[in-house]
Design a binder for these strands. Structure first.
Lengths: 128, 128
DNA sequence: ATGTTGCATCGACGGACATCAATACAACCG
DNA sequence: CGGTTGTATTGATGTCCGTCGATGCAACAT
């Protein structure tokens, strides 16, 4: 499940151009929350940067000082967020990136070309 | 503290092209964690999408069913993540987006142009 | 069948986090 | 000066989350 709001799409408007309504915010927060952990970020980058597009769990687990159940738990969260998918092949399970989701995030964080850098006027009141 | 990118830079390599080392992961996770809450996402989008580039706290608070200290707390987390900045002008405090940070995130999530969509072939067991 | 290996789920525990009421601080106004 | 309004901080509380050991399930091997 998770699958962006059935029909809400939220394709382009962008996080930075119009206020999010609460439903969109809840949905998006789930994905960002999945990225809000160092272990999951490293897992994602290991999966995404792998040449063949796939990584076996048995190659991921030994890269961390964590128990196997913990890694499995993090992979589950990344999968539930729609960031990765997995496929069992014989004894082994292979994970791969779902680029549509990272593409969507990148789009949401990219401001439309025209947006001017906010006048950057005084930096005076820098709160210590 | 926190102070986005103390000295770690992590400028370009991209989350999806090479495995993150742990220090980079910890640093990045702090930012994504700040985005991993619906209230903070809505606050950020309200601030970022505001015409003048600035929003007064007094315009943000009434948009939520939350206490004023709670909103203030969320704004503090967004600021510590380097996503927004604030400036006091008279009685009021104005928040504005720090676009460098969202730009950095968008860049990290954007795959280098050449990256082929992982052959998407069959969704079944199809394997060599 | 029995054993073995790879991965997922379960139950528990400690620390982190979102929230609030109360309070403190800052700037204005009489 | 004291009073009022806007915002931040403090302290407490309930819930969520990361982690583990133990266990379960799937796919091979013998």
């Amino acid at each position: 499940m998770v699958e962006a709001t059935g029909g809400g799409d939220t394709c382009c408007p962008g996080l930075l151009t119009a206020p999010l309504d609460e439903e969109q915010a809840v949905d998006l927060a789930r994905v960002f929350k999945a990225l809000g952990d160092p272990v999951r970020l490293r897992l994602l980058s290991m999966i995404a940067s792998k040449a063949g597009g796939e990584v076996c769990v048995c190659d991921l687990t030994p890269a961390f000082d964590l128990s196997q159940p913990t890694i499995s738990h993090h992979l589950k969260l990344l999968r539930q967020a729609g960031l990765i998918d997995c496929e069992r092949r014989g004894t082994w399970v292979y994970y791969r990136l779902l680029p549509e989701t990272t593409d969507r995030l990148a789009g949401l964080l990219t401001r439309p070309a025209g947006t001017p850098l906010p006048d950057r006027r005084v930096r005076a009141g820098a709160v210590s």
